[in-house]
Amino acid sequence: MSRQTPLHAAHIAAGARMVDFAGWDMPVNYGSQIEEHHAVRRDAGMFDVSHMLALDLEGPDATTWLRGLLANDIAKLKEHGKALYSCMLNPDGGVIDDLIVYYFSPTSFRIVVNAGTADKDVAWMRQRIAATAANVTLEARRDLAMIAVQGPNAREKTWAALPQVRAASENLKPFSAVAVDDLLVARTGYTGEDGFEIALPANRAEAIWNALLAAGVAPCALGARDTLRLEAGMNLYGQDMDEGVSPLDAGLAWTVDLKDEARDFVGRAALVAKPATRAVLGLILEDKGVLRAHMPVFTAHGEGETTSGSFSPSLEKSIAFARLPHGVETDATVEVDIRGRRLKARTVKLPFVRNGKALV
């Protein structure tokens, strides 16, 4: 049986269509996925992301241990609440998960991992703690819910619903978080728009969701979240990367920090030994059809494959990410095999859309 978030009853009451997602009963839409998508691009929408797992890492060895665990270097984090996006790799350089780390002090961090990989992630982290004899504790915070409020008017509408957070969050920089009473308000997201991701006690989730609803924030679900992150050029674990794919081949080389030669993180040796063999570009379909994942792409430099694809409500065209041979440049014409037909597409630099504006 699928697990339920603290907002499950609110989704049912709102008439959401529910589906199983990574073992959780989650809303896929509340009626119109397109309208939800546009609400985020043009105004403000909110998502229940309580299925994701927050982990609190504490202890004298927290900084050293994280520097050995992650491909990105958390030594960059100096300010309280500052966040970092990173991949967590296996020894072969494959991606176990992509995650966000929030810095509170050299001995205190919060890590937010994906729902579908949460159990695997925790098991791997505990294994690494034991293997390194690190003096740290790792606590899974299933007592928390998380709500993402995204869009050009997201912050103003959050402050209307939760006026107590305005003073602390008004000058909050992107990719930073601040604690306000029992809430953690982070200026992060997965849509390519501004806004907040709010971690809060599970028993307060429905009241805060309803307050945001009353402030004019539209409830949005998994369907819109996927088209928004696709337009924004943001990877989805399990589609755009997994344990068999290096971050260097998944368009995530920018998250791999090799500057400190003395820092040996899990997977480093494998990445150094095997540089990137693929480049990730966006595709815009020029013929009629819909791009999906795992479609062959034919280029002048060899064959590639789409990893994520869908119809873009903002561009009103079909778009995709494609893992292509090196040498393929932007604005090149390629062909995609869609049900046995080779249809023309154009390569573009990611992202497609950011902050409400088309970039291609």
Rank of each mutant, 00 (worst) to 15 (best):
S2I: 08
L7A: 09
A9W: 01
A9H: 06
A9E: 14
G15S: 00
A16N: 00
G23P: 12
D25E: 13
D25K: 02
M26E: 00
P27C: 08
P27H: 06
G31E: 02
E35G: 07
V40I: 09
M46F: 00
M46I: 01
D48K: 04
S50C: 08
S50R: 03
M52H: 13
M52S: 08
A54Y: 15
L55N: 10
L66E: 12
R67A: 11
I74W: 08
K76W: 13
G81T: 03
A83T: 15
L89P: 05
P91N: 09
D92Q: 13
L99G: 07
Y102W: 03
Y103W: 12
T107W: 08
A118L: 12
T132Q: 11
N135D: 15
L138Y: 12
A145I: 02
M146L: 05
Q150V: 03
P152Q: 02
N153I: 04
W159G: 02
S169D: 06
N171V: 04
K173D: 14
P174Q: 05
S176L: 02
V180S: 00
D181R: 10
L183I: 05
G189N: 03
D194Y: 03
E206Y: 08
N210H: 02
L213G: 09
A214E: 14
A215Q: 05
V217D: 02
C220Y: 00
R225L: 03
R225T: 00
E231F: 01
A232M: 13
N235P: 07
G238N: 03
E243M: 11
G244Y: 14
V245M: 15
V245R: 14
P247G: 05
G251K: 06
D257N: 15
D257C: 07
K259V: 09
R263N: 06
V272A: 13
A276F: 09
T277V: 05
R278F: 11
I284G: 02
V290D: 12
A293E: 15
H301S: 06
A320W: 14
F321V: 06
R323A: 10
P325G: 10
E329S: 11
E335W: 04
G340L: 08
T347W: 01
L359V: 08
V360Y: 13
